[in-house]
Each structure stands twice: as structure tokens, then as C-alpha cells.
Design a protein around this nucleic acid. Structure first.
Lengths: 141, 141
DNA sequence: TCATTTCGCTTGCAATATGCAAGTTAGACT
DNA sequence: AGTCTAACTTGCATATTGCAAGCGAAATGA
């Protein structure tokens, strides 16, 4: 487990993975403007490290040559259970701004939720699975 | 979720929680000597922050007045599913040194494993639930 | 075509966090 | 009383982070 924490044992990596997984983010710009307030140099660094760890991969956008699309690998999407448990824990124990009832529903439908997340990943379904649960401080979800 | 990562979004906090949860660690000294190589000032800082976040609590040892026993709170033990999923992910995708067969067994017995972990916490069963899966670099498990 | 904008970064630098070694205090142990 | 041990704290060098600005290539607009 400590080797895992060397990969995403920081404040940003798991947020990037979550944004890829359930918010439908694809590009550098989207992460940058996600409201979490990550600095661009750190973002670039984390994307590089996640790629080196085989958790995400890149492909050039066909419609816009400037854009790089980031995407979770299989190894990356396999983090879905971790993220889901973290989401549930946060909703139960922290004031996340997320609607607890909705999260509890997910908690009692774990397998279905995970199956749906994976299905969307496989089919490249671009719709966000979760909204941003916006709070005033913009850090929930 | 990002508020959760402000609490344990670093390399050490989740390891401390894991050591409390499944390795039966109780004291400062035990964490310090766990082989992960955490510096004492950082350890003190993380214990303070985890306590402030309500994830761990302290009580003075009755047998030895110098010792402080650290213990997970209910909020802390509720992180068990997160840790379990992380353990499973690591065993599947990283070279952790943990015996994959044993971990896969846990993966298919999720609820029983979690119930047992919680039971031991409630009953203050001091036996470690997991061994240290020692590898040469001493960072697996 | 040529200026302007957008995208995905990189650079410089100040602030913060981390790691290492040594020191301190209170409570055992002999 | 003297030594030892547990749980920290302190000082300081190094590493990581955050902030603002800049940069090159590709797109967009006139």
C-alpha cells in the first residue's frame, strides 16, 4: 500500500483521477479550471507521474491538434472502488456539500455503481457520472 | 472528497491509519520503528492532525505513564473499506510483495473482512490482522 | 495572410513542507 | 540517585508547492 501512496499520496492525484472517472474531464484546461485551484506546473507534473505509473494515457484530439485527451487506463479505472469508498466516507464524516442521501444510495448499490462507471469508461461515454456538488468553497464532491 | 484529501492526502497519514487498523500499532515508538522511515517530527505532526480531524484519539497507558496509546475513532475505523480497496488495488497492479492469493481471497470476502476488522477494533483485540508482508525495501503491505 | 486567441505546458522565484540529527522533558527501572 | 526510555521538539538543509508570467504550436477571425 505504501507503494501506492507514492503514486497518489498527495492532495491532487486522486482528484485528477476522480475528475477523469466521474466528471468527464479530458483536457489540461478542464483540470486547470475545475475550481480546485491546482497550479499549472503541479498539474503538469501530476499528469506526467500518473502517466508514468500507467494510470492514465494520452491521445491527441482529432478535432483540435492542440488538445491532448487524457484517459484512464484499465489500471486507472480499477481505482473506482477506492474512490467510491472515499466518497462515501467523506459524505458520512465530513461536510462535503454532497447530498448524503444520494451517496448513501450509491453505498447500498456499490456493484451497480461500479459497473456503470466502468461501462461508461469502456464505451467512452462522455457524460459526467457525477455533478460537481458545488459548495461555496468549491471543494466538495 | 477533496476535503478528505486535505486530511490524509499525503504519503504518511494513511499508513499510520493502516498500522493502527490492521497491524495493531499503538504507540509513537511503534510507528517510528515500523520500517517505513517516517521522521519523528512528521510523525508527531500527522498524529496531531489526525487527532484534530477526529480520526484518532489518545489515551494514557495505565501500565506505563510515559506511553500514549493511539486508537482509531469510529470515524477512523470507517476508513477500513477505503484501505481495503487500496490494498486490493495495490496487490493487483503494483508489486507490493503482498501475497496476491491472500488479497484476492479478501477481495471476494469483503464484508466478512470488514466485519472482522471492526470487531477487533470494538473489542480492542490487540492481535494484528495483517502481517507486514516484508519485502527487501520494507514498503509493501 | 496575418494578427489574435487558445491550449498545453515551462520558468523563475518565494513560501511551505519534509527529512535528518540532536536535544528536551517526564516518567520508569534498578 | 542515576540511567534509560517514550514522546516529542528544535534547528537547519533540502525538496516540494504555489503563484505569476511567459512560450511555442495550433486554431480562429478579419
Amino acid at each position: 500500500m505504501s507503494i501506492s501512496l507514492e503514486i497518489f499520496g498527495d492532495r491532487w492525484s486522486l482528484l485528477i483521477i476522480r475528475d477523469l472517472m466521474v466528471r468527464g474531464y479530458r483536457t489540461f484546461k478542464e483540470f486547470e479550471q475545475s475550481g480546485e485551484g491546482i497550479a499549472t506546473n503541479i498539474l503538469a507534473d501530476r499528469l506526467k507521474k500518473l502517466k508514468a505509473a500507467g494510470i492514465i494515457a494520452t491521445e491527441k484530439s482529432k478535432s483540435d491538434g492542440r488538445k491532448l485527451n487524457y484517459r484512464l487506463t484499465e489500471k486507472g479505472i480499477d481505482l473506482a472502488p477506492v474512490l467510491l469508498e472515499l466518497l462515501i466516507w467523506g459524505a458520512r464524516h465530513e461536510d462535503t456539500g454532497a447530498p448524503c442521501a444520494a451517496i448513501e444510495k450509491m453505498a447500498s448499490n456499490r456493484e451497480a455503481v461500479l459497473a456503470e462507471v466502468r461501462r461508461r469508461w469502456q464505451e467512452r461515454d462522455p457524460r459526467p457520472f457525477l455533478p460537481k456538488f458545488g459548495t461555496s468553497n468549491g471543494r466538495a464532491g
